[in-house]
Design a protein around this nucleic acid. Structure first.
Length: 423
RNA sequence: GGAGAGGUGUCUGAGUGGUCGAAAGAGCACGCCUGGAAAGUGUGUAUACUUCAAAAGGGUAUCGAGGGUUCGAAUCCCUCCCUCUCCGCCA
């Protein structure tokens, strides 16, 4: 959520930057400012009236104590007008605040100046491409066939016990999952992240805090009896750890990492592109979250991008980094890098990580602040990134490393898998 | 799930209708003291809004959340949430 004060002070710039995101309702900017004017004037009237009523109440108390009952009664008689006024103004204020909030949550975050204008994925900027795409033989198999051939993943069994999109990993397939999780967590720790293990369900307040609610409710699984949501990403519980928190200046940066399964309903996505591991309802992911000083957040996003790239390099996977264009970015981000690996058998790029700077868009809603050098509270910047999401890594690993004699495990993973080949 | 107790500031904890944004202590910050530290001592120490104000400061709201009673609510009433203790169940 954007700060109203920022919108007020930077009206033209806000309009310009919203245009980069192809925002369709620029009129909201003026509406928000108007509503805020109304909010302020109503608040002022309410405050003034309350001040009068408070003064009278205090006076009545004094009169009673001094035995001047008659005077107290006279004054009492006058208070009903204030009470009515206060009630009316409070209702008005609640109404205006509600309207203002409704408009404000419709406004996306402002893109960073480096974000290219554009509306389709084709307009994303390719920042760099790294690694060698393997030349697979004619008869190379896509990962879902390899998974079956080597008895690594059973999609049918998942359907039987749960439904489509809930794969069952078996034998070396299961071990590979565990190895990747441990590898990613160890690498994060080396980069200074503190590991946390978290609830996989969150309450409504947390859903609001990171912006999944109210709009994206349909993307999460909801446990009705207890009104809890299965997390779509570890970002939700990790970031909400800091909801309503004021950090000391020297506590920044906060660097947390966590492994969790992620649950996404992905309603309406079917077809060839979601075959196998390409898109699932439940998948595993290691997430990085940082809370930083606003001055540093753009340095930090570069560091996070390098961390993710390091993982892909160590795994020997060809990848590219995209700077997302305004139209392809998420609602909440100011700048996003997507990392994609080359899936050699499918002959397409698969997104395996997304690293974003949210500036104060999330922290405003979370009320995540820190005490700055002047001792004042100030909204912190938040960033997060996957490092990494497992399924597509597994997909490209299986496809790209397939040989006549089996699938070769990358060297860095062998200490974790304890086997070098899937055969 | 049953029975009971309770939710106050960074923490402990007082406060049962007005003088309470809230005692006291601890912690923390700054200063004095000291060769240095401890002890001692002094001051300060919530958040948000503000078309009051240059600032100091002032006003308003907030004592789990939301409603209500009252001229006036941390304090009384109602609803909800949460925590603790005992019993039951259980990895």
């Amino acid at each position: 959520m954007l700060q109203v004060s920022y919108i007020r002070d930077n009206r033209e710039q806000v309009l310009e930057r919203l245009a980069v995101k192809n925002f369709k309702q620029p009129e909201l900017v003026n509406e928000v400012i108007d509503l805020d004017d109304k909010r302020r004037s109503t608040q002022t009237s309410l405050d003034n009236t309350s001040a009068e009523a408070n003064a009278a109440a205090k006076q009545i108390g004094d009169l009673m104590r001094n035995g001047k009952k008659d005077e107290a009664e006279t004054l009492k008689a006058k208070t009903s007008a204030w009470k009515e006024e206060i009630k009316k103004l409070s209702e008005q204020l609640a109404l205006v605040e509600g309207e203002l909030y409704q408009k404000l949550v419709l406004m996306p975050n402002l893109p960073h100046s480096s974000v290219p204008k554009g509306s389709t994925p084709e307009e994303n900027e390719i920042v760099l491409e790294n690694g060698v795409k393997p030349n697979l033989p004619e008869n190379a198999l896509p990962h879902w066939e390899l998974a079956t051939k080597y008895n690594l993943i059973d999609f049918e069994l998942g359907v039987k016990i749960t439904g489509a999109g809930f794969p069952v990993y078996k034998g070396k397939g299961a071990k590979l999952q565990r190895a990747l999780i441990a590898f990613f967590l160890d690498e994060a720790e080396k980069s200074g992240y503190n590991e946390v293990m978290l609830p996989l369900m969150v309450n409504e307040a947390s859903g609001f805090g990171t912006g999944q609610l109210p709009d994206k409710e349909g993307q999460m699984y909801h446990v009705g009896v207890d009104n809890l949501y299965l997390i779509p990403t570890a970002e939700v519980p990790i970031t909400n750890l800091y909801r309503d928190v004021i950090l000391k200046g020297d506590e920044l940066p906060v660097k947390n990492t966590g492994y969790t399964p992620c649950f996404r309903r992905e309603a309406g996505s079917y077809g060839a592109h979601v075959r196998g591991l390409n898109r699932l309802h439940q998948f595993d992911k290691v997430e990085l979250v940082q809370i930083v000083h606003p001055d540093n957040s753009y340095d930090v996003i570069e560091q996070m991008s390098l961390h993710v790239q390091g993982l892909l390099q160590k795994l020997g996977l060809p990848y590219r980094v995209l700077r997302l264009c305004g139209g392809d970015m998420s609602f909440t981000a100011s700048l996003t890098y997507d990392m994609e690996t080359w899936s050699a058998a499918q002959q397409r790029w698969l997104e395996v990580s997304s690293v974003s700077n949210f500036e104060s868009f999330q922290s405003n809603r979370l009320k995540l602040r820190f005490r700055n050098a002047e001792g004042k509270t100030q909204l912190a910047h938040t960033l997060n990134g996957s490092a990494l999401a497992l399924p597509r890594i597994v997909a490209t690993l299986l496809e790209n490393n397939q040989t006549e004699k089996g699938i070769k495990i990358p060297e860095v993973l062998v200490p974790y898998t304890k086997f070098e080949w899937i055969d």
